[in-house]
């Protein structure tokens, strides 16, 4: 998407308004939900423990509740990721952001990686699923392989990062991921995107969803340049 073509509501609708600080309070979740509704963000991205509160606040607003599953290391047996996914949905989650089995990818156990992703996707039914690669830990070849596997498994998005590593989303990684997954699957960029410039350049690289705690700042910045 060209920069000049982006309207403010399109940009807002690409943002997953995120609150994953371990020292967040219930009040921060309430603020997050109010802002998401006000700005028309795509979703709020939060821990499963906060899903019931967010789901009650965002009922009928059009803003989705996205639960962070297997955070942040992804090193959970598939059956436990599936359980966590179903539990989050039961509590009101409408989108599932989950970390893939990174160790299995490193060990070239691709069947395990694929089955793990597919099982979470199946548990999520019709809900939007985003599988997190944690690109910081991967070689370019591993990133490509993970994208191919995610595509085969049928998720809706491949996502760069959890936001808990030294490095989050980069323009290069988003380009690489988009190139592999093609048009049918989206790329979500997350981790370290704080300004409107960063947001627009990552969108220019092929991202169609952005995970950030700075959504308000990004939209306000966008208004200023218009």
């Amino acid at each position: 998407m060209k920069r000049r073509e982006i309207k403010i509501e399109d940009l807002a609708n690409m943002i997953d308004h995120t609150e994953l600080h371990i020292d967040a309070k219930y009040g921060d979740i309430k603020r997050l939900c109010l802002e998401a509704e006000k700005y028309g963000f795509a979703a709020v991205a939060i821990y499963p423990v906060n899903v019931p509160l967010a789901a009650s606040l965002l009922k009928d607003t059009g803003v989705k509740v996205a639960a962070a599953i297997a955070f942040h290391m992804g090193a959970y047996p598939t059956e436990l990721k599936v359980f966590e996914t179903k539990d989050a949905i039961e509590k009101g989650a409408e989108e599932i952001d989950f970390v893939m089995n990174i160790g299995a990818l490193k060990a070239k156990n691709y069947d395990l990686v694929r089955n793990d992703i597919r099982a979470v996707k199946d548990a999520a039914g019709d809900l939007v699923t985003k599988v997190i690669l944690e690109t910081y830990l991967l070689t370019n070849e591993e990133k490509r392989r993970a994208c191919e596997i995610a595509k085969e498994a049928g998720v809706d998005f491949v996502k760069t990062s959890t936001g808990f590593r030294e490095k989050g989303a980069t323009v290069e990684d988003v380009k690489l991921m988009k190139e592999v997954v093609g048009d049918r699957i989206g790329v979500k960029a997350a981790g370290g995107i704080r300004s409107v410039d960063e947001a627009l350049s990552i969108i220019g690289a092929g991202a169609s969803r952005i995970g950030t705690s700075s959504g308000v700042q990004i939209i306000e910045g966008f208004k200023k340049r218009a």
């Binding site: 994953l20 955070f71 966590e84």
Partner: peptide, 10 residues
């Protein structure tokens, strides 16, 4: 672990 964000059921 390490974030403590999972539900009691999980």
């Amino acid at each position: 672990y390490p974030l403590g964000g999972m539900t009691t059921e999980v």
